[in-house]
């Protein structure tokens, strides 16, 4: 009981602090935005990718172009590796970041998020036919709540599958955390800078499984080079991943966040986001 009370209290204090921070920020930086710089990884298809010739394309660049047209903002996309993206945002190199960034409590401590524009599922992939047979080709979706006690049956099922295996993941994602908290003690984990690198190692047989986004796997597994790889087990969705993918802002630019929230709401309401997700993911993944 007492812990709950303390939690509630700290929450109030947090809100109060955020309120004060917002007030201070809006007083000091009530700036009129005409142009913004947006960071993207440009290497996470189909969300964002580098096309031959060096231009950036994908779901997010197209969505951003639509949002910027709504707000009459001049938007510049810049490529930045994921591992330096949040520090660069904080240093002020960019005004916002868009890279399939899932809202997590840890990240909310350091950056501010817009409303989510997509919600996706994570899944395991394997290349070894024996492992694929054992785990079964991915079909149905399992909803995990993020509450350890409720999720235990399915996690235990995964643990028996993953025991003694090597799992590859991209570093610093919501999935990294999921894999580390649940399987660190029974499997060895390798972290990669880019998602395509663990797919490469999966084919090479250096790792037994990799864990990433369903949308990412669907796009790369179409390629002839990856025909040996397939998604296995159940697709994992639900509240465990939080509200979904959103734009990231510095905490001192609430007016910019508000502007983008408004544009996103409009794009979600008139079906633009749905149309774009269907174009790029062949499925409606709006939140």
């Amino acid at each position: 009981m007492t812990t709950i009370k303390i939690k509630a209290l700290t929450k109030q204090v947090k809100f109060a602090l955020i309120g004060v921070a917002l007030l201070c920020a809006s007083v000091s930086e009530a700036k009129e935005w005409t142009a913004v710089t947006i960071a993207t990884e440009a290497a996470y298809p189909p969300w964002n990718m580098t096309l031959p010739g060096g231009t950036i394309g994908g779901f997010e660049p197209e969505l951003m172009a639509d949002l910027c047209a709504r707000m009459k903002l001049k938007c510049t996309l810049q490529a930045q590796d994921w591992d330096g993206m949040i520090p660069s945002l904080q240093a002020g190199k960019f005004d916002l970041i868009m890279d399939a960034i899932v809202i997590t409590p840890e990240r909310e401590k350091v950056i501010a998020f817009s409303r989510p524009y997509a919600a996706t599922q994570g899944v395991l992939a394997a290349s070894d036919p024996e492992l694929i047979a054992r785990a079964g080709v991915a079909g149905e979706v399992v909803k995990l709540t993020g509450d350890a006690a409720l999720d235990k049956p399915y996690i235990d099922q995964m643990r028996t599958l993953l025991k003694g295996k090597t799992i590859g993941i991209s570093s610093g994602t919501a999935y990294t955390q999921f894999v580390e908290t649940n399987f660190k003690d029974i499997a060895s984990i390798r972290e990669y800078k880019k998602s395509d690198e663990h797919v490469l190692d999966l084919q090479a047989g250096r790792i037994d499984f990799s864990f990433d986004d369903v949308t990412f796997f669907s796009s790369v597994l179409d390629m002839p080079e990856n025909k040996s790889v397939s998604m296995v087990g159940s697709k994992i969705g639900g509240p465990i991943w939080g509200p979904g993918e959103a734009l990231g802002f510095r905490q001192d630019t609430p007016e910019l966040k508000a502007k983008f929230d408004e544009a996103l709401s409009a794009a979600l309401a008139d079906g633009t986001v749905k149309r774009l997700t269907e174009k790029w993911f062949k499925a409606d993944i709006t939140p």
């Binding site: 290497a43 580098t50 031959p52 880019k194 395509d196 390629m223």
Partner: peptide, 11 residues
Amino acid sequence: RASLMAAGSTR
């Protein structure tokens, strides 16, 4: 960087 970009994009 250009080599990495090209490698990732074309596989």
